[in-house]
């Protein structure tokens, strides 16, 4: 089974769209669209997702090229960080009141 929205009945492939708001920022996923090829996908993405100066750069990626983690195995797959709150700065409370820490 492919990406949601990518069905055999759609004549055009599905593209995921990423927009960089400004130099120095990463491209962020903003949505998806259908287009016959990559060039048209970039043009359509410009018209659809950057009508108000939302970006200075656009990536389009064929949705079929994306591999996802198994949504049903969510719990087990992401188990490792659970219970490891010592990975966060807020875990360490004894230094409270000490400046620049």
């Amino acid at each position: 089974m492919s990406t949601p929205g990518e069905t055999g009945t759609e004549p055009w492939p599905l593209w995921e769209v990423f927009v960089r708001a400004n130099r120095g920022l990463s491209h962020v996923h903003v949505g998806s669209l259908h287009a016959p090829d990559a060039d048209m996908a970039v043009r359509n993405a410009r018209d659809l997702y950057t009508r108000r100066n939302e970006g200075v750069s656009i990536w389009v990626v064929p949705a079929v090229a994306i591999t996802t983690s198994d949504p049903d195995a969510k719990g087990a797959f992401f188990e490792s960080p659970a219970g490891k709150n010592y990975r966060h700065a807020v875990y360490y409370t004894k230094s409270e009141g000490v400046k620049h820490l």
């Binding site: 949601p4 929205g5 069905t7 009945t9 949505g31 259908h34």
Partner: peptide, 14 residues
């Protein structure tokens, strides 16, 4: 935007 959202539910644009 809305047609795209509907398409994720398994209905085609056409």
């Amino acid at each position: 935007y809305l047609y795209s959202a509907a398409q994720t539910l398994g209905i085609s644009r056409d």
